[in-house]
Amino acid sequence: MADNNKPSGFSDEEEARILAQRAREAKRNKRLARRDEGGGGLNINSMMDMMTIILVFLIDSYGSNPIQVKGGADIVIPYSTTELSPQDTMQITITRKSIIVGDKTVVAVKDGKVDKSQKKGENSFYIQPLFDQLTEEVSRHRQMAALRKLEFDGVVTVVADRTIPYRLVAEVMYTAGQAQLSKFKFAVVKFGRDAEIMKATQKNGGGGG
């Protein structure tokens, strides 16, 4: 009894078997202990929490922008210090290449002009294909508003490239006005006054030094 490792009262054969069993058990315990210490298993619960928060944040910012800018490099949106946020309205996009209503390309634009065959003469503000498409969209939006028992507000968001001449912007707005869209929102990239001041400071500093 004094020596634990040496079982007494067994035959040699049984003794060997018992010793082998003990050795196997010790080995197994050692392995289990090592796993519990954390050498193999990482505690990923806290990491999981973090990831979930990031995921929720990203999904939130993914769906929150109602303005879809189509046109790739053909459109560069102007910067502005405005504080207002965009709303989900009808949208007219004026790129360097075309005028787009919603998802549909309506008229081609070349050098900041719509071809005069699409208008009632050179000096006209009225772009016929744009008017047709807008009328269709307006009646669709009217129906949708009526179904939701709301009044159609006639708001349209105009997304235009920085270099589009004022003349074309005015033509689009006039045509939209003919299609009973009376309130306009110009889409811009928010660039706060603070950022503007910072830019000016850097510029002045660079010029002085």
């Binding site: 990831m51 990031i54 995921l55 990203l58 999904i59 910012s61 993914y62 922008n65 303005i67 949106i77 502005s80 405005t82 504080e83 207002l84 946020s85 965009p86 709303q87 968001t157 005015a170 707005m173 006039y174 939209a176 006005g177 009376s182 309130k183 306009f184 929102k185 110009f186 889409a187 811009v188 990239v189 928010k190």
Partner: peptide, 22 residues
């Protein structure tokens, strides 16, 4: 999912300016 959403996030905030018809 995280890299996928990160790529599609636009960090520039869009805004609008209200104007009346011409």
């Amino acid at each position: 999912l995280i890299p996928l959403l990160l790529l599609s996030v636009v960090f520039e905030q869009m805004g609008v300016i209200n104007v009346s018809a011409p």
